[in-house]
Amino acid sequence: MKKLMNFAIGMAILVFIWQAVIWIGDYQEALLPSPLSVGNAIIDLIVDGIIFVHLQVSLGRFAAGYLMAAIPAILLGMFLGRSPKIWQLIDPIVQVLRPVAPVAWSPFIVLWFGIGNMPAIAIIFIAAFFPVLLSTVAGVKKINPSYLKIAENLEIRNWELMYKFIFPAAFPAVVSGLRLALGTAWIFLVAGEMIGAQSGLGFLIVDSRNTLNLDYVLAGIIFIGVCGFLLDRLISLLERWVGKQYGITA
């Protein structure tokens, strides 16, 4: 309740500053839309239902790209975390690929995947894959050797060792990687939808810009921010639930 209150006050301050800038600077609507016109744009988007169409498309792409990245990254990370020699070979490759912004690949992505859903999904995939892979590998490498000794003693090996020991022991690290990836992937979703997509939140922004409707651009930005925030809350609930299961009080 108190958190909600703080959230509301923070937002009110932001809107006030925004309005104050317009009053003081005397900017025109075409340069910086006022909170009122953006509010109207938000209401229009909701009443028309247009925002929900875009939101649905965006979330669909996001889910597809994110899951396609997360699941293989976790599996691969578990394997690589257990094979230090192979990881020593793979690690430099990952370290070189990781700092490249996913959008940099966009010429190739458009060449290979054309337009439509795929470019955005591919970019989300690239954005989400590395954080999950790296934190899974780190989590597996850091597993307390005592757990492995117990497994050795109880003759638990191979596949059984993976799902009874390695996965649950590394799970907190995996979840924090998932959270990191969620944020990054959501940021790049918009970028992904700005190339070759005909729908989605990113497209909404590009399209509104092309028609010079800056109030719709800002409305789109607000929707993106709020959704990103909600997604993060959602995964932090998951994180806390995991922590509770493990007796770690976050």
Partner: peptide
């Protein structure tokens, strides 16, 4: 031949 350790013996999950 089962070993009992000083501290960590249980899986917390």
């Amino acid at each position: 031949c089962v070993m009992l350790f000083q501290q960590i013996n249980l899986l917390p999950w």
